[in-house]
Amino acid sequence: MRVSALVLQSQTWPSAADTWRAIESSGVETAYVADHLTHPRLTGAWLADPWTTLAAAAGVTTRLRLGTLVASAVFRTPATLARMAATVQDISGGRFVLGLGAGVALDGIADRGQPTEQAERHARFVDVVKGLRAVWAGERSHEGQVLSFGELDLLPQAPGRDAPPLVLAGHGPQGLALVADEGDGWSTYGGPAVVGLGRSEFWALLHRQAQALTTACERAGRDPATLERSVLVGYAAYRPVESVASFLDEAASAEAAGFDEICLYWPTEVAGAALATELAVVLEAVAQVAARP
């Protein structure tokens, strides 16, 4: 079981640089940043740009994989997202993981002042995913349902670099079908339904989602074992890293549900009471999970 961390970009860079070095030393394999323009849980907080942060983090780390959890298709487009991802992939020496999701309505409003329905966000998500694949395949133009590009004459990746793995977020039938069709990996926090759930209810939901993804893979003619699976814990109504023992239980539950990676919120001052964890507890919990065979 791999351990990863979501690092909410709340620190100014002099402090953040030390945080990224500490994460690399902790045994965490991948550290992710969030891609939000606004968020109701972060009212009044500073949240640095994720792409600039990842490029800076690449400069103060050497082994740690770096990623987005997740880039937001509601305000990203294929050609620009592909260029940003390729740049971080190059700067990091090939350590980048592109997590991508449909995004939330509030970010669309923050970006364009226009509300969007779930069906619209899903259509845009599909176009961003398929558009990314088209860019990476070297296509000069691509026509989507709502997003297209053309006259793209530059290299899709820096010379000598491969495209990063594409890890897609999905919770419902349409999202999981897209993951099965296009993803190199799957990322979930359970979806909005987890808010208010206790531990047993949360893991029951994750088991159902994991089985639904397996079914989607089988329908798509794909071996489910070819898809990496990652779960973010901490958004439900309980604290998964309240103690070392509680996180060991979470890791065991994740493994039982078929996940390859468990992601926790790294302690930051912006996380608030619901997501707060003690750094010493996190460090010991990560060390114990990492030490398991």
Rank of each mutant, 00 (worst) to 15 (best):
A220M: 07
W46D: 13
L205Y: 02
M84E: 11
T68R: 11
V70D: 01
S187V: 15
L166W: 00
V70H: 02
C217T: 09
Q11M: 14
L176H: 00
A55S: 12
A22N: 07
A254N: 03
P156C: 00
M1N: 11
L197G: 06
T43W: 05
Q11H: 15
L166Q: 00
V270I: 06
D181C: 09
R161F: 11
A274V: 00
L205H: 07
P164H: 08
V60T: 00
T53W: 00
D162M: 13
A137I: 00
T215Y: 01
I262W: 02
R63Y: 08
P159C: 08
A280E: 14
V244E: 06
H142D: 10
V194C: 04
A56Q: 10
E24S: 05
T215F: 05
V128T: 09
V282H: 06
D181T: 13
A102I: 06
G67L: 07
T43N: 09
V286E: 09
A34R: 13
F125C: 05
P192S: 12
T19L: 04
T188D: 09
Y235A: 15
V231H: 00
V282Q: 08
V129Q: 01
G94E: 05
A216L: 06
E250I: 06
W46R: 15
E250K: 05
P224R: 07
A34W: 12
E151C: 15
L176V: 04
A291N: 12
V28C: 04
E228V: 12
G160E: 08
G170V: 02
L197A: 02
V97S: 02
T268Y: 04
E250S: 11
G234R: 04
L178N: 07
L154C: 15
L248F: 07
A216G: 06
A71H: 05
A16C: 04
H207W: 12
L8Q: 12
I262S: 03
V60A: 03
A134L: 11
L283Q: 13
